[in-house]
Design a protein around this nucleic acid. Structure first.
Lengths: 170, 170
DNA sequence: TGCAAATTTCATTTTTTTTTGAAAATTTTG
DNA sequence: CAAAATTTTCAAAAAAAAATGAAATTTGCA
């Protein structure tokens, strides 16, 4: 059986591949915590440790995913500004690079994925208040306190979350 | 067709039911942002606006979910300390109340659901470092910087997230 | 202790989400 | 402008997640 060389180009390739696998694993988990599908984590994980911009074809072949997934995943990552395209001379295809400033990534994520929910939560609380019927004093007190707590929750969320990205001093 | 009365007990019931529906809707969305299944949001939403502790049977009937879902959902909520049981004299069943201190709820959520991931992320980064092969100076520089960024990310997350609950001044 | 009520567990079913793959659309350039 | 390469879209398939329901277990009280 062939023994892999201990040093030199070949061993580096193997080990950089290991690094890549760890990276993909890392980001698949990270992204899935944020509710993103596996393919999105895989693509970002691959790009994160790539020194050069990669074409979609490269991503598809390397990860063994379909071109549909790749296209969809890159679209998601673009909308989060987690990747950017870079021009490669003499190649008409788009080439992608990972955006690695996590502070900006979080800020985008909060703005795009969280804040819209906060906004609609506020509307829902308003509907709660308007559907609060006349009740006995103590019952009314109970419901009002609960509604007030929700208001504070969404207010705190709406202020704190956007501030959060700023707090991140990486 | 029967006209519902505009005021009085009956109308209040209808409107408190509306409130309840809004509450369930609110928490189903909120919980699903945190990756919790619908049933968990429904149960919490129902309990949140209930002045009295509710039995599992009540929850099952009221929400029209299975006892399996209810049992599983209550287990999840208990583990997050989002509900607590209260003793009801002359009734052997457990009765549940919503825990409404969101600060504590978030603190538990972060401790139980997020921090374990952070810990395993740190291990994965260590594995990355050990699989970094000897490379040219500039290649090594590139990979080291990327790994360092991940370290800072997890360090920041590990510090900031637990502090976050404390920041929440509801 | 024994029994009935209450709860949990878990294999199966249902629902939801993600991926695939091929057709349609777009883009580039010869 | 046309042809080829690339990318997007989307219906269908596959995979993953959640809900069901009935059997097994636990609980509390007669």
């Amino acid at each position: 059986m062939p023994q892999p060389p201990i040093t030199g180009k070949n061993s580096s390739q193997v080990n950089v591949k290991d690094l890549e696998i760890e990276s993909i694993d890392f980001f698949v988990r990270m992204m899935s915590m944020l509710g993103m599908p596996k393919s999105v984590g895989e693509i970002y994980g691959l790009l994160y440790f790539s020194p050069s911009a990669l074409s979609m074809e490269h991503i598809v072949k390397h990860l063994g995913i379909s071109i549909g997934s790749a296209s969809q995943g890159l679209k998601t990552l673009r909308s989060l500004k987690a990747v950017r395209t870079s021009y490669v001379p003499g190649d008409r295809r788009d080439h992608y690079l990972a955006e690695t400033e996590f502070r900006r990534l979080f800020s985008n994520f909060i703005k795009e994925e969280i804040m819209p929910h906060m906004d609609s939560a506020k509307e829902r609380i308003e509907r709660m208040e308007s559907s609060l019927p006349p009740l006995s004093k103590e019952a009314e007190e109970f419901y009002k306190i609960r509604i007030e707590k929700l208001k504070r929750l969404t207010r705190a969320g709406g202020r704190l979350l956007p501030a959060l990205a700023g707090l991140l001093k990486f």
